[in-house]
Design a protein around this nucleic acid. Structure first.
Lengths: 120, 120
DNA sequence: ACCATAGGCAAGCCGCTACTTGCATGTCAA
DNA sequence: TTGACATGCAAGTAGCGGCTTGCCTATGGT
């Protein structure tokens, strides 16, 4: 698994997944059923177990959630690591308006979801 | 326009829009045609003018881009304001694992893109 | 062994979204 | 005014993403 940059943004694009991250921030290391129950009661979400499970898969693929198996339970832990660099991407450099022309040409995204790229 | 929280995440979910933000970070205040040209040359994107225009609409609706008209030109400026609070949402509070049970019940997202909500 | 619990896998449906296509509007220069 | 340039608007299309439905595996208790 290559863990692209865009996966983090895609993962955060869904409000249910953001609420899951809120829930894991409030109480870390929950199981799937725990998350389902607390999403239903505290946040009024009616999502099914499979829906939450798929959301957790997306979050794990993005590196925002790590899991640990123990018997028949699977605990989920939030990982805020991928969150830090994605903001300083646009916040870090000073705002120069129309200064130079030739960019540094560093790759950040590589356009992961671009269809073609056409290597010729 | 209410400017919801989720709009910022939705706007950042697309890699072309992120590249546009990169481009505006590199040179602020570009016109639509400028952005099209530089996306094509520097980043190798073959998006049409209308596609870029629609992306800019999304970014503006999210508050990430502000515009200023001048004659027949429309200049686009990046606005990093909405970016700052969305990360400290999960980075700010300390990670307590399985501490209390009753949450603070503060609303952050309001679940803007939830279909039902069913007010009964 | 039996059953209940916790979770996984896969196919299908449906709505949203990015993109295209075509035309319309507005602005400046000659 | 005429034409070129910069942008806007709207309908239509294709693909992706979130959710459901149904069944399966595995662990633990009795």
């Amino acid at each position: 698994m290559v863990r692209r940059v865009g996966d983090v943004f895609k993962a955060l694009a869904d409000s249910t997944r953001r609420t899951i991250l809120d829930e894991l921030t409030d109480r870390n290391g929950q199981t799937l059923f725990e998350i389902c129950a607390r999403l239903a009661t505290k946040h009024g979400l009616g999502s099914s177990r499979q829906a939450i499970s798929q959301h957790l898969d997306v979050l794990e693929a993005a590196g925002l959630v790590e899991t640990r198996r123990e018997g028949r339970y699977k605990f989920h832990y939030i990982n805020t690591g991928p969150l830090e660099p994605i903001i300083e991407r646009w916040l870090g450099k000073p705002e120069k308006d129309a200064g130079d022309g030739a960019g540094t040409d560093d790759e950040r995204d590589r356009h992961e979801d671009q269809p073609g790229e056409r290597p010729r």
